[in-house]
Each structure stands twice: as structure tokens, then as C-alpha cells.
Computed example of a mutant assay.
Amino acid sequence: MKKHVVFFEVAGGTDKGPDGYRPDTMPMVESLRKRGWTAEVIFYSDEKKDEIFEHVVRSADAYVSRINPGNLKDESTYFQMIRQLCEFGVKGMPHPDAMINYGAKDALVKLRETPLVPEDTFAYYDIASFKENFPKSLKNGERVLKQNRGSTGEGIWRVQLVSDIGEAEEVPLDAVVRCTEAKDNHVEEHTLENFMTFCEQYITGENGMLVDMRFLPRIKEGEIRLLMLHRTPVNVVHKKPAEDTDAFSATLFSGAKYRYDAPEEWGDLVHSFMASLPTITEKLGGYDLPLIWTADFILDTDEQGRDCYILGEMNCSCVGFTSQLSLSEDIADEIINILSQVEAVEQ
């Protein structure tokens, strides 16, 4: 074992501190160094990808990706490089395909056979299927449409039917719908036809898709984010939306209030999620769990009237922990533990 880890960053972006690094990157580097390992930060660029590849293959046991794909001109080139690194024996944290599979909104559709996701959750990969099926799902109640791209609630819409459509089997195209975007809780009213035409932008282009989920009214009680360090729950962030009537967004930008709890305070949620990890791993490609990742949940009520937790999304691209930098010590321990297990298997 070389006992060397590379952290990938990219220059620029709003996630950098005054020194040009993400605020949570150097603490991990220093924590590894305290344990007798070496670590370095490499700023990725397409122009230097071949040089970077050769250096990392030659020197490192693993890479830790700290790049928000939205800060890259072409994320596919970066993913191609780190996929090759994995093929050449460098441990990916995470593997690029795990990053894609866990981060994509249609992970929910892949998990709808589990208790985590309602069965009436759909994904639209082309405009024709969207136009054919969304009027039918909207007939059954309020829906939430989620684009695959974007962040902080952009392109996530709560859709409510305003018009009375009687016993129609699906919502007619001239019906009026009330649409609230999670980005800032602003409200618009459109005909269904016009709104669906607007949403075509989310389906077109690379990785374009829309996920269609039932709206869960208990989002007003707060979204629950579970922060995971590989297989260990670290903390729970309770994100309560603003009190406005239409507000359902749990982003800070929209006025939501955040509270940090210990995992033990959410025992039922943590227990059920941990029990689901083998299924999640299997359904999302069989890759090792990401190093640092999150799962967001919304409270619902099951048929017996008991609380249950519905998975809203997961993220593992570059989850930050700037409010808890001491976590870098645990992360360094886990990196070493993972690589020690890999070495033991290979011997």
C-alpha cells in the first residue's frame, strides 16, 4: 500500500474558501497526515486529465472526489477519467457510476419496490411518455415533479389542480394548475398544457429526465436529512420549511430552519434505513457505498396510521460538512479502514 490519497477539486465555484479550496478538504488532508499517510489536492481540468491520470495511477491508493459536477464544463470527461482510475486499481470514493446512480433522481424509481419509495413514483425520459402519463397521475392528487439537473430546489415543482374536472379519467390540457417551485416557494398558475411544455426543458439534453412523485403534505413538518459516513450515520438535519401557506421547500435560501440532531434521536428512521442498505446497494449497481453521502426523507403516514419515512433523494457528489469540520478525523479513519479491507481481500 502506498498510503497516499488524492482529493480532486476544481478551480472556481461558490463552494471555495479564501484559500481556493473547499473549506472541508484541507481538514481531511491534515487528518490523514496525522495518521502517517500522505495526501494532496489536485485541481482537475480537462486539459490536464492525461497528466493527472498518470500521476494518480502511479502514486495513490485512492481518490476522494470533492467536485460539484455543476462546476465542470463537461462532467462526462471527468467521470471517464476517474472510471479509468478505478479500472487501474485506484479505489474510487465514490466510484463515478455510484455517484451517478445515487445522485440521479430516478434512483427513487429503482427503489420503489422497497418501503422507502411509494409505488406510484414514475420517471419520464422522453416528452411523449411525460405528456401521456402525467395528466393521469395528476388526476389522483397533488404531485411533485423533480428535474434531474439543478440544485437547491431549482426545477422541483409542486403541482396542484385548480380546475374542477369532475369524473374525467385524466386532467384535460386546458385545466388550470397551481405550480410552486422549491427554489424559493414562488407560485405560478398555468394551463396544464403550457406547464408541461415548459417542463420539456428538463427532459431534453444529456441526463434529462423528470421524476413524478406524490406530494407528501407532512413536508410542512420538515425534511429529514441523514448524513452518512460510508456505513455509519453521523447526524440528522431537520429542515423545516417556512410557515407560508404554499411553502414546501427545505432549502436555507427559501427560509427553512435547520436543526442538527444525533442519529439516536431518530432511531426508527435510522434503523429502517440501515436495514435497507443491502437492497439500496443492489438496486443501484452493486458499488461500494459512497464515503460521504446523504439521504433525505419526508414523513408520511402508513395504512395503520403510523409514521413512516419516504425517501426524497440522495446525494454523494460532494457533500459538505463545513459546520462540523472535526468530522475529518472520522473520515480519515474510515478511508484507512476501507483501503485496509481492500488490501486484505487482494492478498
Rank of each mutant, 00 (worst) to 15 (best):
G103L: 05
A104S: 15
K105C: 03
K105F: 08
D106A: 12
D106T: 15
D106H: 14
A107M: 06
L108Y: 06
V109E: 03
V109F: 09
V109R: 01
K110H: 09
K110D: 14
L111N: 11
R112A: 02
R112N: 15
R112I: 14
E113I: 02
E113H: 15
T114C: 05
L116N: 04
L116A: 11
V117K: 01
V117L: 08
V117P: 01
P118G: 06
E119P: 02
E119F: 14
D120M: 07
D120Y: 13
D120P: 04
T121S: 08
F122S: 12
F122P: 09
A123G: 12
A123R: 14
A123F: 06
A123C: 12
Y124L: 03
Y125F: 12
D126H: 10
D126T: 03
D126C: 12
I127G: 04
I127V: 15
I127W: 05
A128S: 05
S129D: 14
F130V: 11
F130P: 11
K131G: 06
E132P: 09
E132F: 10
N133G: 07
N133D: 12
F134G: 02
S137N: 06
S137P: 04
K139N: 08
K139C: 01
N140W: 07
G141M: 03
G141F: 10
G141D: 04
E142L: 06
R143L: 11
R143Y: 00
V144G: 10
V144E: 01
V144M: 00
L145H: 07
L145F: 13
Q147N: 04
N148V: 05
N148E: 03
R149M: 11
S151K: 03
S151A: 10
T152M: 13
T152A: 12
G153L: 01
G153V: 01
G153E: 13
E154F: 13
E154V: 12
G155Q: 01
G155A: 14
I156N: 00
W157D: 10
R158C: 01
R158W: 10
R158Q: 13
L161E: 00
V162A: 01
V162N: 03
S163P: 03
S163L: 06
G166P: 14
G166F: 10
E167A: 12
A168I: 06
A168Q: 15
A168D: 10
A168V: 09
A168N: 02
E170H: 15
E170D: 13
E170N: 08
V171S: 08
V171H: 08
V171D: 12
V171C: 03
P172M: 10
L173H: 11
L173R: 13
L173G: 11
L173I: 08
A175W: 03
A175D: 02
A175M: 09
A175L: 03
V176P: 00
V176N: 07
V177D: 04
C179S: 08
T180L: 06
T180W: 02
E181D: 08
E181R: 11
A182H: 11
H186L: 07
V187Q: 14
E188P: 00
T191C: 12
T191A: 11
L192E: 01
L192D: 01
L192Y: 09
E193Y: 14
E193P: 10
E193V: 04
